[in-house]
Nucleic acid binder design. Structure first.
Lengths: 162, 162
DNA sequence: ACCAACAAGTTTCATTTGTAACTAAATCGA
DNA sequence: TCGATTTAGTTACAAATGAAACTTGTTGGT
């Protein structure tokens, strides 16, 4: 067993007691991974959609017409990601691109009737997943959690430029 | 402006009111992305470590000796990821591999003195980041959030096998 | 003892992801 | 009205990721 340098297990307690299991960025990453994986597998298997594709459908279903640039702002995804996801959805006939008269660099995107039908099918399933994940948490706890997630995001973005 | 087809925004409200902004898997993913990005950039710039590498150092700093398999279980990372991160750390002289007498397929990993020194340097900085992210939240709120993250992870894993 | 099943780690390969470079169009200033 | 800068979106390329195959070693049944 060893421990060639000290008397006790060779690792001393962390300077100010860092425990990975209780470290928020770690917990957040692991939890998000688990949830994303679950959702990704579900949508892949049932609807053959990736998460970026699903997000675009969700936003187009909510907001109606949009441009890719607006979708980037709305979903916080990279413009390359949005470009690729849009192309795939257009290809599958779920999204329609029409020229944007007021700016010929961009296009207007909207769900086709098929896309809208898919949206109406997916949305309840998405909400059901969320409900299953959130069982055991009171509305108040859920509110605290959502608030924390939003705040973490802002704080992280904020700290990025220091 | 515009809206070339109807009187109102062309998208109706979602079936049971799905709002992406309030959808937990989405919020979780976005928050985790922002936080991971922040941490990743910080450790890359200051210590030239990836997140997997940093996690291994954290666990080895906490626990002392370990095998890769144990590190996989502990960090919830893939064995390929752990293998590559270990190789890089050994290469840099931060981690030492010694043969495992009781099982010659595996090796024992531990921080070298340099690795331990780096750990002692990084840990306070990691805690400082966490503290900055968590300003504005009471200890109680933090506890709720941590509990929720753990529970979400378990629920997601649970739902994966249904 | 032996062979089948299994486990630790590594390597290979295909997919995903994001950064940077690029094209085309709009805007802004002189 | 022209050229410089900025923006929408795509393409090209490089790095990260993970599944599957592989290697080496262990274990358990007969």
């Amino acid at each position: 067993m060893a421990d060639s340098e000290g008397g006790r297990p060779s690792a001393a307690a962390a300077p100010s007691d860092l425990k990975l299991d209780d470290y928020l960025p770690y917990r957040l990453s692991v939890a998000a991974n688990a949830v994303s994986g679950l959702i990704a597998r579900a949508y892949q298997a049932r609807f053959d959609l990736t998460i970026p594709q699903w997000r675009l459908i969700a936003v187009l279903g909510e907001d109606g017409l949009s441009t890719q640039q607006a979708l980037c702002a709305r979903t916080l995804m990279d413009k390359v990601t949005v470009s690729r996801a849009s192309a795939a959805l257009v290809e599958r006939g779920l999204v329609l691109r029409t020229p944007n008269a007021s700016d010929r660099r961009s296009h207007r995107l909207a769900l086709t009737p098929e896309g809208a039908a898919l949206y109406r099918q997916i949305a309840p399933s998405a909400l059901a997943y969320e409900a299953k994940l959130l069982t055991q948490f009171s509305p108040l706890e859920q509110q605290v959690a959502m608030k924390l997630l939003r705040r973490l995001q802002l704080a992280a973005i904020d700290l990025s430029g220091d």
